[in-house]
Simulated scan of single mutants.
Amino acid sequence: MRRVIFNQKGGVGKSSIACNLSAISAAAGYKTLVVDLDPQGNSSQYLLGKDGIDARNNVADFFEQTLSFNIFNKEPKDFVHSTCFENLYVMPSHQKLDELIFKLENKHKIYKLRDALKTLSSEFDRVYIDTAPALNFYTRSALIASEGVLIPFDCDAFSQQALMNIMSEINELREDHNRDLSFEGVIVNQFQPQANLPTHLIEELQEEGYPVLPVYLGQSVKMRESHSAATPLIYMAPRHKLTQQYVELYECLEEVLAEV
Score class of each variant (00 low, 15 high):
118 K>S: 12
194 Q>K: 15
192 Q>P: 00
190 Q>E: 09
120 L>I: 01
192 Q>E: 15
100 L>T: 03
133 P>A: 02
133 P>N: 05
194 Q>M: 11
112 K>Q: 13
88 L>K: 02
173 L>V: 03
171 N>V: 12
197 L>A: 10
122 S>Q: 06
150 L>A: 09
105 E>W: 01
124 F>E: 00
120 L>V: 00
114 R>M: 08
124 F>V: 00
81 H>T: 10
156 D>T: 08
147 E>S: 10
165 N>Y: 13
173 L>A: 03
160 Q>K: 14
108 H>A: 15
155 C>E: 08
120 L>C: 00
125 D>E: 11
186 V>Q: 01
180 D>E: 12
167 M>H: 10
143 L>G: 09
176 D>H: 13
188 V>P: 00
175 E>C: 11
155 C>D: 10
190 Q>M: 15
121 S>I: 01
142 A>Q: 04
199 T>F: 05
87 N>S: 09
145 A>S: 11
161 Q>N: 12
134 A>H: 12
154 D>K: 12
190 Q>R: 15
140 R>Y: 01
162 A>C: 14
157 A>G: 04
157 A>S: 15
86 E>M: 07
185 G>M: 03
157 A>F: 14
172 E>T: 13
142 A>L: 06
153 F>M: 09
183 F>D: 02
181 L>F: 03
128 Y>Q: 01
183 F>M: 12
189 N>M: 06
161 Q>S: 12
152 P>T: 08
159 S>P: 09
192 Q>C: 10
102 F>M: 14
93 S>Y: 07
175 E>S: 15
174 R>C: 11
135 L>R: 04
82 S>W: 02
90 V>A: 05
170 I>G: 03
118 K>D: 14
163 L>N: 07
